[in-house]
C-alpha cells in the first residue's frame, strides 16, 4: 500500500513503517476465529499488535496513561467492528485507522474541555510527559540545550489542533500518503494537504521564536 511512495522527488520514506510491514506476522487463522466471536483468538491478535497500537496512540496523545486508555478503547472498538473488516487492507492498516479515530475523538474532547475551562488570555500549561525537561543537574550544556529544544517542540506540537497534529504525524512518522491520510481522517485530500502545511508552518514559527 505504501510502496508507491518510494523514488518520488523530495520524498523520504518512513523506514520504520517499511520495517513494520516486513515483520507483520500472519494472523489470518486468528482473525477468522475472532470474527466468529472467539475471544481467545482476538486476544492473540491483541498480543501481536499491542506494542504497535500503543506506540501509535502515544504518538497522538503524548501521554503514557492516555495512550494506554486509547489503546484499550481502540481494541474494544475493533472487537465490536471486526465483522466489518473486509480484509481489503492489512489488519494493521485497519487497526491503525481505529486507533487514529479513537485518539482524534479523545483529542477533540480534550480540546473542547480545555477551551471551556481555561479563561481567555491564559495560556494552557504544557503537557507533562515525554517532552518534559529532564533534570538539569550533571547534564552537559549541549544535552541540556537538546532537551530544551525537545521540550519547546513538544509544547509547539501540543498547541496544534488535533487534526493538524494527527495529519503531520501520519505523514512524517508513519509515512502515509495524502490519499491514505484522507481515508483515515475521512476528509478530502486537499484538506490533508492544508492541514499538513499549516502544521509545518506553525511548528516552524514556534521553533523560530525559540531560537
Amino acid at each position: 500500500m505504501m510502496a508507491e511512495k518510494v523514488n518520488k522527488p523530495g520524498f523520504e520514506t518512513s523506514k520504520k513503517e517499511a520495517d513494520q510491514a516486513d515483520t507483520m506476522p500472519d494472523i489470518g487463522p486468528f482473525l477468522e476465529r475472532a470474527k466468529n466471536g472467539d475471544e481467545e483468538a482476538f486476544g492473540e491478535i491483541v498480543r501481536v499488535f499491542h506494542d504497535r497500537v500503543y506506540a501509535v496512540a502515544f504518538r497522538y496523545v503524548q501521554n503514557a496513561e492516555d495512550a494506554a486508555d486509547m489503546a484499550q478503547k481502540a481494541w474494544i472498538r475493533a472487537w465490536k467492528k471486526l465483522a466489518t473488516f473486509q480484509q481489503r487492507s492489512s489488519f494493521y492498516t485497519w487497526m491503525y485507522r481505529v486507533v487514529a479515530s479513537v485518539c482524534l475523538d479523545h483529542l477533540r474532547k480534550k480540546k473542547r474541555l480545555a477551551e471551556q475551562t481555561i479563561p481567555d488570555g491564559e495560556e494552557p500549561l504544557p503537557a507533562v510527559g515525554a517532552g518534559a525537561a529532564p533534570s538539569v543537574s550533571s547534564r552537559p550544556d549541549r544535552e541540556l540545550e537538546h532537551a530544551e529544544v525537545r521540550t519547546r517542540f513538544q509544547e509547539a506540537l501540543d498547541e496544534l489542533s488535533p487534526e493538524h497534529r494527527l495529519a503531520i504525524m501520519m505523514r512524517e512518522v508513519d509515512g502515509y500518503s495524502y490519499e491514505e491520510i484522507a481515508k483515515i481522517m475521512k476528509c478530502r485530500k486537499g484538506t490533508v494537504m492544508s492541514r499538513i502545511f499549516y502544521a509545518r508552518k506553525k511548528l516552524q514559527e514556534r521553533m523560530q521564536e525559540f531560537r
Partner: peptide
C-alpha cells in the same frame, strides 16, 4: 523532531488483554 519523539515502553500486554476481555 517528530520521528525522534520518544515512546515509552507499552504496558504489559497480559494486563491490557485482561482489561479488554
Amino acid at each position: 523532531q517528530l520521528r525522534d519523539l520518544e515512546t515509552p515502553p507499552a504496558p504489559p500486554g497480559e494486563k491490557l488483554w485482561s482489561d479488554i476481555r
